[in-house]
Design a protein around this nucleic acid. Structure first.
Lengths: 227, 227
DNA sequence: GGGACCTGACTGACTAGTCAGACAGTGACC
DNA sequence: GGTCACTGTCTGACTAGTCAGTCAGGTCCC
């Protein structure tokens, strides 16, 4: 169903609407306004607003997979640093807006089986990506013996918690505090004693090219103190 | 403003409505239905739905403070175990429903200055309570030298992340994994080498007595597979 | 009689989803 | 080449419903 062009248009429109309006104001109209089609066209292609959102999560998952794949040839320690940095470096305005909306969306998962299933998949891929880094580090001999599954889960929980607190409380310091705590208390146990966790990243975790901010990020300024 | 009886009635009604309907369905009517007043009475006492929610967060904060105070005479290690257990033990249905709704509410904080300010305060009290435990443990000589502020932040982020993932992904295993990881990797650095983190809690973190489930928790059963 | 408290009926704004019909393209058939 | 039937895509207008908040008026107590 649906030719790829219009699907892509609807997905990026959804992304923009999410960033600009948040999830709870993500109306079918708000999405349509950001395409060159009418609201009815949305319902023609996807039967419901919910289906659009479900597809959007799918779209994000594809993005994650693509982005993880790009990093696989790097050494494990560099990848770990990039992963940490991805979650715990201070977001720009667009990133923050997106995290904010995504949190609202995630908060609906308990009420919505489809969202929950898709978010699970997204989470599992992330978890597996991190486990892979940890396992590769063991093989490369830079990490000490540990349980990659448990450590990955702990790290993701801490990162996620930090990000959510940063977004909901509006406190950027949080990220740096948690990063330092993670490096000192968790990664210290993981790295071989002679291995230092890099101060700066060797490369940035690649962004989702499809969601490169097409909208000229300026008309968004006076809309900042919202709702 | 407002006599304490009706305030209390509205707050517990808000709590019940949140648990049963979630935040995004928390309408003024849903709250009123759980009091013996009409919806108009709500608007008479609080000027808006938002004000009710803001007051409710306040109400929760008072509860936390009360509950933390009750535990202050216990040894630090016991308190730490109770704190960990509070966040990371498997919730019953009511607790889970409440966490779910609270997450929705927290997800609105970025858009709402009042909510954000109150949630910050709530968070700060929690952080201070945990720091206090850590400092007391240092004084009691059961903990090794560490930075209580940073460790408290790390623990709270990890706990919060674990709880959110458990709620949004519907996976209870998460909590146990994170608890084990926290004990092995973070608390291992904090406790003196000869001190063992308790397997079982000496006491439960006290619940909020005011929110004791007054509604006979049975009519809620067939409404479980919702929305 | 005045104020505190409360109610039911109502309004206005908003939204998901529907539907009848428009229109452009395509292929068949004369 | 022209016409006709048909299909996929799309639209504007509409429906049915929801919800926050208002308001005129009522009761009860001082």
């Amino acid at each position: 169903m649906t030719n790829p062009d219009i699907r892509d248009a609807i997905m990026t429109a959804t992304y923009e609407a999410l960033c600009e309006e948040g999830y709870s104001d993500l109306t079918a109209q708000a999405i349509a306004d950001r395409t060159d089609r009418s609201k009815s066209a949305l319902f023609y292609h996807y039967g419901s607003r919910e289906a659009i959102v479900a597809e959007f999560i799918e779209y994000l998952i594809e993005g994650i997979e693509l982005r993880v794949a790009k990093t696989r040839d790097r050494p494990a320690l560099e990848r770990l640093a990039a992963f940490v940095d991805w979650f715990l470096s201070e977001p720009d305005d667009d990133e923050r807006a997106f995290h904010t909306a995504l949190l609202e969306l995630r908060a609906q998962a308990p009420y919505n089986d489809v969202f929950r299933a898709k978010l699970r998949e997204s989470n599992d891929r992330l978890q597996r990506a991190l486990e892979e880094i940890l396992r590769d580090g063991l093989e490369e001999g830079v990490f000490q013996a540990h349980d990659p599954e448990a450590v990955a889960a702990l790290l993701l929980a801490a990162f996620d918690g930090a990000q959510i607190r940063q977004v909901t409380l509006g406190r950027n310091e949080y990220l740096e505090t948690i990063r330092a705590g993670t490096v000192d208390h968790v990664l210290a146990d993981i790295l071989k004693p002679d291995v230092e966790f890099p101060e700066t990243v060797a490369f940035e975790f690649p962004p989702d090219e499809r969601l490169r901010d097409s909208s000229t990020a300026d008309e968004r300024t006076e809309r900042d103190t919202v709702r």
